[in-house]
Design a protein around this nucleic acid. Structure first.
Lengths: 222, 222
DNA sequence: CTGGCAATATTGTTGAACAATGCATCTATA
DNA sequence: TATAGATGCATTGTTCAACAATATTGCCAG
């Protein structure tokens, strides 16, 4: 068996390039606000300008890029308003998803897996990895709702939120403290205590939002 | 003042074409399942294939088109699963939006305007117009939540749902009976009775979903 | 300094070209 | 006759080069 890991062959070239760019953006290689020249980036990615433009349209719709007519695209700059909005929507989606979770839902397994990955990454001091695993944990929470549309919408929110995370200097403070809280949440859920799980989730969201906003406030000052 | 109605100048050509196609699809000119040939449609819309492809990517992401690699795009065929999913998400979004509505929120004005438009269209026997106004009514409900991301997500759901409406023969049955229910809802909301409004909304969603699903069942039989 | 203007770079859009893929048709064989 | 394989055709996938439309930059005059 050849390597079928990590990257599903990417149906089309544009899809693949979109994934690549998404990684570069959420991974911090491309910084928020950075201008993306069509010609330069096309050459760098070895695709034609036309194909790259298709990708730009995709990512703009996802909120990762900002498009100003006749002035090109740049990496979106997350605002406080955006962060507030994203957390508001997260509450609206995640809390009911947990509260109404069916007891043996398969997504609970995915949550446990993400949790294990987070603990592992913490052991290695890989805070970026902790952040990714944490996002997967919450994506799994949304999957409890069994709604494909909600799942894909949430994936979008997640990508945008990672953009904001990227602006924050200290990822340990941001992601590190939540592993234990989330472990509690998972335990409550596995024990069938959906209300307890929902409460912990709410607490997590409040605290995480506060951390991000505080970090933002610090940044906007300087 | 020249005509600045209906169509905001459409920032880019692609945006404009996207809007045009969206109208043709939700308006029923393009039927679900219909194959869209790049060459033919590009000629028809008087744009290049490249530009049209950008548009295809947009609408595919919105759920209005289906893309099969190397086999082109076609108008999405709504499934029962899609309808169920959409209504589930609508409940999740709209009900809290109403329940937590701030008393004098501007969106309430938009709701009233949509209501008036619906009544007017009913007077003319324009059931398609009633449907559009009804969708605007519910979009206004979502705006009560003051969340741009929720608003744009809902717009997407709406477009997809209209696709399903298009499959239904009798639009009067579908949209006609709800005007009075929605009027009640609006009255309750204006009177500050958010709970009553939320209850009426829930009833509406249940009944509307049932109508659509029943019509679907009839269609799939034949 | 400041406003206006020309020169330049970038995006917006097109048309043509060719490779890759899927679909329909035809033919030869059992 | 039915079926598998081969062949050709139409469509999509992607690139390239060109030009128009729109910003941005730098320069010059006042």
């Amino acid at each position: 068996m050849t390597d079928m890991n990590q990257t599903p062959p990417a149906a089309s070239l544009a899809e693949g390039i979109a994934a690549e760019l998404r990684d570069r953006i959420t991974g911090g290689i491309l910084r928020p606000g950075q201008r993306l020249s069509e010609a330069a980036l096309a050459a760098d990615l070895v695709v034609s300008r036309n194909t790259l433009r298709e990708v730009f349209r995709l990512l703009t719709r996802e909120g990762l890029l900002t498009h100003l007519p006749n002035r090109g695209v740049s990496v979106a700059v997350p605002s406080m308003a955006a962060v507030l909005d994203i957390y508001r929507v997260r509450r609206l989606i995640e809390v009911p998803a947990i509260a109404n979770a069916r007891p043996r839902h398969p997504a609970i397994g995915a949550m446990a897996a993400a949790m294990a990955a987070a603990q592992d990454a913490r052991g290695r001091g890989d805070w970026q990895g902790v952040g990714s695993a944490n996002m997967r944990f919450h994506a799994a929470i949304v999957e409890l709702a069994d709604s494909p549309r909600l799942t894909s919408f949430f994936a979008q929110l997640t990508a945008e939120l990672r953009l904001a995370f990227g602006l924050i200097d200290d990822p340990q403070e941001l992601h590190g403290s939540f592993i234990d809280t989330n472990a509690d949440l998972l335990a409550a859920l596995q024990a069938g205590d959906t209300q307890g799980a929902a409460d912990r989730l709410t607490a997590y969201l409040d605290q995480s939002e506060r951390l991000v906003l505080e970090a933002f406030a610090r940044i906007e000052l300087r």
